[in-house]
Design a protein around this nucleic acid. Structure first.
Lengths: 216, 216
DNA sequence: ACTGTAGTCGACACGGTGTCGACCACCTCG
DNA sequence: CGAGGTGGTCGACACCGTGTCGACTACAGT
């Protein structure tokens, strides 16, 4: 049950009025709505079920647990973040600084647009193995991309040698993750949302190139 | 109930055999022991009580909840980390690079020595307001120190201008926190424990000075 | 009309939490 | 030395959330 993605065996049936995976959608929607109002820990399976107009046992017909619902939600957001980031990376031409910035902004925008879910996922990150697994994969993707980019820059002589590119990438990506998370949750000590990308970008550029203005 | 520190009203009594805050210590010890074996979520108040040789209601005489126990434990470790770090910072003379490194190592060593507790605290960080509060204060302390150091280095011309020193400090300290946490828990993508300090130090130096070898 | 299958829920068992009230052991003071 | 207080202890209880089982319904295909 790594990723309860859609695309079940039966698609396209349109006949049944109050049924099928409308219910699944209703649960997801309810979860999203309730998460705006209160933390995940204060939402029970019963709340989710009632919100979707079904009983608690019926909920279990659709999801194995409360966590599985959040996982499904997170799955969608993660896909969004990945594609946005990929698009940003692809779209940026020869502007080195700009392309790093775009990638940063893509991720920021995605999670900013889903604050409550991000908070819930953070809760689960500590406790749920499935969520941790999913998140590991996401971060691994970012790290791999980043490491490749760093190595490319070193190869063309734009970036100085230093620690293994991958290690650098790991540190920088976890920095982003944590700082973004803290900032979105409004925790302290944090960074004002306006300045966020600038600060992060500076650290990235200095860590990779040793300067704020890498050669083109 | 910000910090259930010791130093109750009565100290120094030595007469009573099976009593007083020996029990408190027993609970703390049991928690520490059990945390080596399984995650916090799998430890009940009953486990803690039985482990300390008391009943569950009696547990509540000493601590308000399971979380409060971990908070008390964390309190001690945090104090340790702070003083070690302060000592490291004070002890380092004119070796700039070395003093940054020492501070980094102090924190790493403290939390490495208390892996299980660190993991438990991470769990709670998401859910418990008290733990979050304590941790905020710790991070705020680190950030303030760091920001002051950066400003001092800029003032003496050793470090270039850039984003507000505090913002830089926030980003770097959260990076440390997250990477250390991930590494200690053995999560992926992570950094090998041996290389940890080197990588982190490089990012810090490059972010602050733009180079791995700051002028003395 | 019959049979299977997707969906639904009432009722239950369970495990954990937190609290109340009775109780006990010991200390101190009159 | 007995009386009353205080610190400590626990059995029993009320409560809440989870997850499961088994009986039931609605409908589809044959």
């Amino acid at each position: 049950m790594a990723a309860p993605s859609p695309a079940g065996p039966e698609r396209g049936r349109r006949v049944r009025r109050p049924s099928g995976d409308d219910r699944e959608r209703a649960i997801l929607a309810t979860a999203e709505r309730l998460l705006e109002l209160r933390p995940l820990a204060d939402i029970s399976v019963d709340d989710l079920a009632r919100g979707a107009g079904i009983s608690r046992p019926t909920f279990y017909f659709y999801f194995a647990s409360k966590d599985a619902v959040v996982l499904a939600l997170l799955d969608r957001v993660v896909a969004e973040a990945r594609s946005l980031r990929a698009a940003a990376l692809a779209g940026a031409g020869d502007d080195v600084r700009g392309s790093w910035r775009l990638a940063l902004e893509a991720v920021r925008d995605t999670f900013t647009a889903h604050r409550s879910l991000t908070a819930a996922a953070t809760q689960l990150l500590a406790g749920s193995a499935e969520v941790r697994e999913l998140w590991s994969q996401v971060m691994e993707g970012f790290v791999t991309e980043t490491a490749a980019a760093i190595e490319a820059e070193r190869a063309r002589g734009a970036a100085p040698a230093g620690p293994p590119a991958r290690d650098l990438a790991v540190a920088l990506n976890w920095m982003n993750e944590r700082v973004l998370q803290v900032t979105l949750a409004g925790q302290v000590p944090g960074i004002a949302e306006e300045g966020l990308v600038d600060v992060l970008l500076t650290v990235w550029l200095r860590a990779v190139y040793g300067t704020d203005e890498p050669a083109v």
